[in-house]
């Protein structure tokens, strides 16, 4: 590219091309955080479901605490990637913040519930554990919806809405450990599959 003078059409072409390239740059591996979160939530929810079901003890819900391990793994990968990144994009940063917020609430709420259970024996632990799953499910749908809108991916938007609205509906019909299975399905349709689709799309381009 030279420092030649331009005509207005060429100027517009340069500006549009820069926007297009910037979007393509952002889409490179944009699905990776979704895949990591998807795998994390899938593994944790299946583990919670399995031990809750087999022991009939809802206290196992505190396995949600282990989200923090995946969070550390994700941060480590992001940090490593940052060293190789030659351009920082606002959009990528915003999506990162959305999922960091999700992590804060998922881990924070588990901690809050844990403290409440240990200090207030009058609380119905069974009800409260399912309620924790409900909140995590709504937050998952909310975070996925924002991500879908930002990356302009219809699949993630629809999955986020279904997830966010479907979780409280399912809460009325499902009980106990089965609630966590709902989160497993949600992580699959709102995170894992869209993450894989996003990465495959960006590689094709």
């Amino acid at each position: 590219m030279e420092t030649n003078e331009l005509n207005p059409e060429k100027s517009l072409q340069i500006i549009s091309e820069a926007i297009r390239r910037s979007r393509r740059e952002f889409e490179k591996n944009a699905g990776t955080p979704l895949i990591i979160w998807g795998v994390a939530i899938l593994i944790i929810s299946l583990a919670v479901w399995f031990v809750w079901k087999s022991t009939d003890n809802p206290a196992w819900n505190f396995l949600w605490f282990s989200t923090i391990i995946f969070w550390i793994v994700l941060s480590f990968i992001e940090k490593k990637k940052e060293k190789e990144v030659r351009v920082k994009n606002f959009l990528g940063e915003i999506i990162g913040y959305v999922w960091i917020s999700y992590g804060i609430f998922a881990v924070g709420l588990s901690a809050v519930f844990c403290i409440i259970f240990n200090t207030n024996s009058n609380l119905e632990i069974y009800f409260s554990s399912a309620f924790l799953v409900l909140i995590i499910g709504i937050l998952l749908g909310f975070s996925a919806l924002i991500t879908g809108l930002l990356v302009k991916n219809k699949w993630i938007v629809i999955a986020g809405i279904i997830n966010g609205l479907g979780t409280p509906i399912a809460y009325c019909f499902l009980s106990g450990a089965d609630m966590t299975l709902l989160i497993s399905i949600a992580s699959l349709i709102t995170l894992l599959i869209p993450g894989i689709i996003l990465n495959l799309q960006s590689r094709k381009e």
Partner: peptide, 8 residues
């Protein structure tokens, strides 16, 4: 045009 679309 590139810089206006990115942080840095």
């Amino acid at each position: 045009s590139i810089l206006i679309n990115v942080d840095e």
